[in-house]
């Protein structure tokens, strides 16, 4: 038989309370440290962005380094962009043709392919390739310079490393990626014509005129404008990740890898915003 009496709650012993309090405070400290690190990283990236903007308007612009970077950005990615551009056009045409044929709308093929290449496929695919090729290159190069103290050496010899290393790279990426996108667009349409020729002879001039009759200024303009932002984001993230790499050699690989991941993600996010803005304007 159970004894009848007031229900007593189990009160933890004093050492238990102490242990729990210690554990709780440790958890709070851990969480605070995590939040601290996050805000520090946000502050750091903002500061880096501000220094880059400030250095971009300095009088001693490194023009030769800028030209060298433009050449490197263009030269590094040109073969890849050439192949990708042609293949995009070719594949789009081959896949779209049977669907359009079902509706008796094959004549709309050049316009449809041109629109999708100019508006979306060309800019995004080119930017993603550049994020892989240029972003990782910049991250690895600057990361390696950081590890081997070359950036410190530059700073000690009274040269602003952001002005010499970051500004020309970001500007080169911002200028060259739109050019590469236009090049990829052109090759994409050419690839599309090649694809259309597989099932029968199509007149080149007719194909091109049909393609461009479907494309208006408001298709081309926003698509080109967003590529400047893609370029700036790829250049900036590549440089930032390289510049803030750790001191060990493994941090070079980490910087290159993170550059690609973050830059690719940013390209997609910028594209999302750009599409929304374009939709609102049209």
């Amino acid at each position: 038989m159970k004894a009848i009496g007031p229900v007593r709650k189990k009160i933890p012993k004093l050492p238990d309370v102490k242990k729990r309090a210690i554990k709780l405070s440790e958890n709070v400290i851990k969480k605070t440290q995590k939040a601290n690190r996050f805000f520090l990283a946000v502050g750091e990236i903002n500061l880096f962005f501000w220094y880059t903007i400030k250095a971009s308007f300095s009088r001693d612009f490194e023009f030769r380094e800028f030209l060298r970077q433009c050449y490197l950005v263009g030269n590094k990615t040109l073969p890849l962009i050439t192949i990708t551009g042609v293949v995009i056009g070719l594949v789009l045409t081959i896949q779209a043709r049977p669907v359009l044929a079902e509706f008796g709308a094959v004549s709309m093929l050049p316009g449809m392919v041109a629109l999708s290449i100019i508006r979306e496929m060309g800019p995004v695919v080119t930017a993603l390739i550049c994020a892989g090729k240029i972003g990782s290159g910049m991250g690895a190069e600057l990361g390696s310079m950081k590890v081997t103290e070359q950036i410190d050496a530059m700073e000690v010899s009274s040269t602003n490393p952001i002005r010499f290393l970051v500004v020309p790279r970001v500007m080169a990426a911002t200028l060259m990626i739109p050019i590469l996108v236009l090049y990829a667009d052109a090759l994409g349409i050419l690839g599309s014509w090649a694809g259309a020729n597989i099932k029968g002879e199509v007149n080149f001039v007719l194909f091109i005129s049909q393609a461009f009759s479907a494309v208006g200024f408001m298709d081309l303009f926003p698509a080109v404008i967003k590529t400047f932002f893609f370029g700036a984001a790829i250049g900036f993230i590549g440089c930032y990740k390289g510049f803030t790499a750790g001191r060990g050699t493994e941090s070079v690989g980490k910087a290159a890898n993170e550059s690609v991941v973050v830059a690719s993600l940013l390209v997609i996010l910028i594209d999302l915003v750009a599409v929304q803005i374009t939709d609102m304007l049209l």
Binding site: M145, T148, E149, Q150, D152, A153, M154, E155, V156, S157, S158, T159
Partner: peptide
């Protein structure tokens, strides 16, 4: 300006590896 008066020899040498020796000296 002050750093212009100080020379710093790094442990690793820290030569700019994308430049020739002449360009390395020309840089500062």
């Amino acid at each position: 300006k002050l750093r212009m008066k100080i020379g710093f020899l790094f442990q690793s040498g820290a030569l700019y590896d994308s430049m020739t020796i002449k360009e390395n000296l020309e840089f500062p």
